[in-house]
Design a protein around this nucleic acid. Structure first.
Lengths: 146, 146
DNA sequence: CTCATGTGCATAGCTTGCTATTGATGTGCA
DNA sequence: TGCACATCAATAGCAAGCTATGCACATGAG
């Protein structure tokens, strides 16, 4: 009972569990998890970004984004074009296939979020998002140098 | 702005982000992330469990737990003893070193959860846990066969 | 007792995360 | 102009997740 008690009142455990279930629901619908989602969202308007910019908008580390982009390139979802202004960089854009997939991804994300938050009353939803954002901010500060 | 807007109102994104930050804060303190935590909690009272039982209490899939246990065994944190009642099974127990680490893990988990939820008002905390649990339940049902 | 079926766990392969390291390029100051 | 330092991205290695598959053992019905 001891562990079970901690599980039910551990925000750490519950967010990990929720995150895993979100990823699973997404995977069931579009065959992929959370990794490419920020890329889809950022580039679905037809714009381009560098890897570094995508790292920032996705709030992941650089090698994570490098690997995600490698997989997306492998699957024909993105193209990388050398950046004319900086030879260390490429500009990343979605392919036509990538744009299709982005649409499907957006629809799936909306659907899964609706299912998840269907368990909340309408007035609870903004509160839930707000609390999550505050938890994120607190934990980000925990990772900063003193 | 489009993606950023989605991010701020996507429970899926926010839980993933929070879960990653929780794991990072834990890793900074005890050198490991969330994987072994349910094992520590389940066995810190000196009891033993089978891998299957640990799969259930941790709410992860069997190969995940197999791999986690392999790592813990490698690091001298657990011992596996063949189950006298079932030759397919071993009973898993924490070593003395494992018990020490479980204590440290528990303290770190409490500290990180306190930091995270310090951003919430006292009356918001049970509500937050409750909402997370409801989100989890809704998503679990999404994964069930029709 | 035999055998069909179920169960527990190992393993393979992949995704999505991270830290650490390295090499190429860019920047700014003396 | 040269050089110290910063920046961008590739790569290595590992953890923690998942699905799929296969083998050994357990179970229950005929």
């Amino acid at each position: 009972m001891h562990m079970s008690y901690e599980r039910e009142t551990s925000a750490g455990y519950l967010t990990n569990w929720a995150a895993r279930l979100f990823a699973r629901s997404l995977e069931r619908r579009i065959g992929t998890g959370s990794g490419p989602m920020p890329v889809f969202f950022a580039l679905q308007d037809g714009s381009t970004m560098t890897q570094k910019e995508l790292v920032q908008v996705a709030a992941v580390e650089q090698p994570t984004m490098a690997n995600t982009l490698n997989r997306m390139e492998r699957d024909g979802l993105i193209v990388r074009t050398p950046d004319p202004d900086d030879r260390r960089s490429a500009r990343i854009a979605l392919t036509p296939l990538g744009l299709e997939r982005a649409e499907a991804a957006f629809r799936a994300a909306v659907e899964v979020n609706d299912i998840a938050t269907s368990a909340l009353r309408p007035e609870e939803r903004p509160a839930f998002h707000d609390m999550l954002r505050r938890v994120v901010s607190a934990l980000e500060r925990d990772g900063e140098p003193d």
